[in-house]
Structure formats: C-alpha cells, structure tokens
C-alpha cells in the first residue's frame, strides 16, 4: 500500500492501545488461566477423571450451578421489579434506595455472609420465623441461594434500569390508542425490548454467583454432598496440597461456565439483533 493511501484515523494511538489491551489481558487473564490447564495436564487422565467425577465433586458442582441458577432467576424477577420502580416512579427517598442497590457490590463478601447468617440462623431475626414453618434458613441449600441472590441483585437492576429509563412512554400510548389493554402492551411492546438487558443481567449475576466464595462459606454450613460448593472443595484440596486435583475441578468449572456464558450471549445476540441495537 502506498503511503498516500494509508488510512487516517480521527482517534490516534490505535496500535499502541490495542497492543496494551492484549498485553494487559494476557497478564491478568490468559496466562493464569492457561497455567490452570497446564497444571491439570500434569496429572494423567485416570487421576483427572477420578478428581472431577468423584461423588463429592459432582455434588459440589450440582450445588454450585443449581444455587447460582436459582439465585439469578430470582433476581431476574425481583431485580426487574426494583428497576421498574426506580425507572418509572419518582418518590421521596428514591436516590437513597437507588444507592442501596449497589451495596452488594461494595460490601466485603465475608461481611455480607456473616450478616446474612446472623439474620437467617435458627435464632436470628428472620430465621426464627422460618423455623416455625420447618424451614431452615442458614446452613442449608436455601442459605446458599439467599447469599447468591444478595450478591447478584445489582447486576440485574443496573442492566435493566437504563434501558427502561430510555424507553419512550409514547410506545405504550401508541399501544393503548390501538386498543391494547395494559397486559397486552406490557407483554407485546415493553417486555420484548427488555429481554436482552434481562438476559445480560442474568448472565452477569449467574457468572458472579458461580464463583462466589466469601459470603457462601459462612451461611452454607459446608456439609460435603449437601451444602458444599465447588469453590470450597477447591480450597479444601489446596489445603491438602492436592494442587493438581484443585486445578482439575477448577478447569471443569471454567469450561462449564464458559459454555453457559457463550450460550446466553448467543441468546442475547439473537434478541438484540431483532431490535436493531447493535
């Protein structure tokens, strides 16, 4: 290409910033992750298979993924309600409630775990009433779900809220003029537009919940086969100097999470393509 035809860009420094981005990502993400697989590769396949498919490991996967999925699902419903209230109505104290939503982001997860345990323990504020109905709050699968729901709330609210605020009220008025009742205008007009941000929020909350450690270990009770999460199992293996075993479990989790994220991203791409937002 002759120098005359060289493209000029309005924003300078593309090559430098791209180089920096790749270097930075390699240092922080790619190299550590590849070490995970290298370390796993040092053990033979039979050992690997035993580590990742023992009943205790399988139970831990099940607990981690199902609790994260349920928690993200709960957040989709109730986080959506919070976002709706914050975007649609104005009332005194709205700013304060808006700030509270970010609390789970800022609070050290261990603090959150201890606080939730105190409240949901059989003698705690909420736990004692749950006890009367025969429901165990803390030290159970429910406890894990509670902790993960707490952690995931801001992801849904913060992804749905801006889209909801941008939504033109005229489209609802247009639907009403065309004879649609309120349910019809919500289901056919508003909800399809909110589906992509809901999926994004779900993905983020789910991904965060799978990896959550700090808050869960306090409230879970950590009984093997019942309330032991996969990250805790990895910690246990590390404490026993079974580093290869720990990385084996970690790599399986990584592959699972990656597949799930790819799946939800694909769904999100499909739904936003229809709206013409990319």
């Amino acid at each position: 290409m002759s120098p005359k035809l060289k493209k000029t860009r309005v924003l300078p420094g593309f090559q430098l910033s791209l180089g920096y981005t790749i270097f930075y990502l390699s240092l922080l993400v790619l190299i550590p992750l590849s070490m995970l697989f290298f370390k796993t590769a040092t053990m033979g396949f039979p050992d690997f298979w035993e580590a990742v498919s023992s009943p205790r490991t399988l139970a831990a996967y099940r607990v981690s993924f199902s609790a994260a999925f349920i928690a993200a699902g709960i957040n989709v419903v109730f986080g959506f309600l919070v976002a709706w209230v914050l975007a649609r109505y104005s009332f005194p104290g709205k700013k304060i409630i808006d700030a509270f939503v970010d609390f789970p982001f800022a609070l050290p997860t261990a603090v959150a775990g201890i606080a939730l345990t105190t409240i949901y323990a059989p003698n705690g504020w909420v736990g004692q009433y749950l006890e009367k109905f025969g429901i165990q709050g803390a030290y159970s699968f429910l406890g894990i779900v509670i902790a993960l729901t707490f952690i995931g709330l801001p992801f849904i609210v913060r992804t749905v809220q801006p889209v909801l605020e941008d939504l033109d009220p005229e489209i609802e008025e247009a639907a009403a003029c065309l004879g649609a009742n309120q349910l019809q205008s919500f289901m056919k007009v508003i909800f399809p537009i909110l589906l992509p941000p809901l999926l994004t929020g779900f993905t983020l909350a789910f991904a965060r919940a799978i990896g959550e450690y700090g808050s869960v270990i306090f409230i879970a009770g950590n009984m093997p086969m019942k309330t032991e999460i996969a990250p805790l199992l990895i910690m246990t293996k590390l404490e026993q100097y079974d580093i290869a075993g720990a990385t084996a479990i970690a790599s399986v989790m990584l592959i699972f999470s990656f597949a799930l994220l790819a799946g939800t991203n694909f769904l999100q791409w499909l739904s936003s393509k229809r709206i013409g937002m990319e």
């Binding site: 033109d168 005229e170 008025e173 003029c177 013409g276």
Partner: peptide
C-alpha cells in the same frame, strides 16, 4: 381514535 406521534412511536422490535 387513531393517533400519530411526532416521533412515530413505532415498535422497534
């Protein structure tokens, strides 16, 4: 009533 809005208010999805 048929109502036509200044900014169209079409359903973009």
């Amino acid at each position: 009533v048929g109502f036509v809005f200044q900014h169209y208010a079409l359903f973009r999805h």
